[in-house]
């Protein structure tokens, strides 16, 4: 009885740990308080990644370069797919750079819980800091690759007389990056939340992303696709991102604001869903992982 009377004289508790958190009980303020941690995780990822290698940050560029080379040979020269009149290297490389940011963000965030089980099991901090820092680290990777893309563009502009159109649309670039990051993060944390229980998803991610790439206009321009295939490809939120990315840098393809809006809304929905799910799982995953 005394306990109950004490309860009625309600005290100011700074925190109450409850069994089940509400779906919408998301502590963004706390996440903001931990912003320094996000910055430090990004730094850690970057330092740790290239300290152990001889070539260092060059690795950031070797993989997309080799992939581009392979695409040039297989899809460009052997299959002779259209590149919308663009030099093959520029066409494939631009697609790959845009896609890599999305794919790497998704893949890396999709096993947040599993790879960090050890540290998550020892200390509490807002778990979202981890996937967010991954997406930001990958932005560094994207920046390096983007720099190379610009170098290629300059080379083709000055030495090969390829016309490169930059316009006001180029200012859309930050928006594209934002949507890509949001999509990668959103899908990544949805998958990471589900993998805590259903580990099968881990296997699905690697080749799922691979398959996804083929329904994104990376090895072919959207203009070369018609009919039902085009409809399916337009459902893919990454389609308009890659198309717009190419358009604002290289001048091929089109900007379709409706499509871009679709991608944006898709990103918002995915991200919200992801955050809700992640937040729900975060509290109990240590028992299931």
């Amino acid at each position: 009885m005394t306990e109950n009377t004490q309860n009625t004289i309600s005290e100011n508790w700074s925190m109450i740990i409850k069994p089940k958190r509400h779906w919408f009980d998301i502590n963004l303020k706390e996440l903001w308080q931990y912003r320094d941690l996000v910055a430090l995780f990004v730094r850690r990822d970057f330092v740790a990644k290239y300290k152990q290698t001889i070539l260092g940050p060059l690795w950031f560029i070797i993989q997309p370069l080799l992939t581009t080379l392979m695409f040039v040979v297989v899809f460009g020269n052997i299959a002779k797919l259209s590149t919308d009149g663009l030099p093959k290297i520029l066409f494939y490389f631009s697609g790959i750079v845009g896609w890599t940011y999305f794919a790497e963000s998704l893949k890396a965030t999709s096993n947040t819980f599993v790879t960090n089980a050890n540290i998550f099991g020892k200390v509490y901090f807002p778990r979202l800091t981890m996937p967010i820092s991954i997406v930001i680290s990958n932005l560094v990777l994207f920046a390096v690759q983007f720099l190379f893309l610009i170098l290629f563009m300059l080379y083709y502009y000055f030495f090969k007389d390829v016309n490169i159109h930059l316009s006001l649309y180029t200012l859309l670039l930050p928006v594209l990056i934002l949507i890509t990051a949001g999509l990668g993060l959103g899908f990544g944390i949805i998958i990471s939340s589900l993998t805590t229980k259903y580990r099968d998803l881990t296997y699905l991610v690697a080749f799922g992303v691979q398959l996804w790439m083929y329904v994104t206009p990376i090895i072919y321009p959207l203009s070369s696709i018609n009919g039902i295939y085009k409809k399916v490809i337009l459902l893919n939120p990454m389609t308009s991102i890659i198309e717009t990315f190419r358009f604002i840098l290289l001048g091929s393809g089109t900007v379709n604001f409706n499509q871009l809006l679709y991608s944006f809304i898709f990103m918002i929905v995915t991200l919200l869903l992801g955050i809700l799910l992640f937040n729900k799982i975060e509290q109990s995953f240590m028992d299931t992982v």
Binding site: N12, W13, I17, K18, P19, V123, Y124, Q283
Partner: peptide, 21 residues
């Protein structure tokens, strides 16, 4: 300790905390 350090959540009941843990 895991419950107190918020590594995992309780199944029932609640923990009220006053201050930074």
């Amino acid at each position: 300790l895991k419950l107190l350090s918020r590594v995992t959540g309780p199944t029932t009941g609640q923990i009220k905390v006053n201050g930074r843990i």
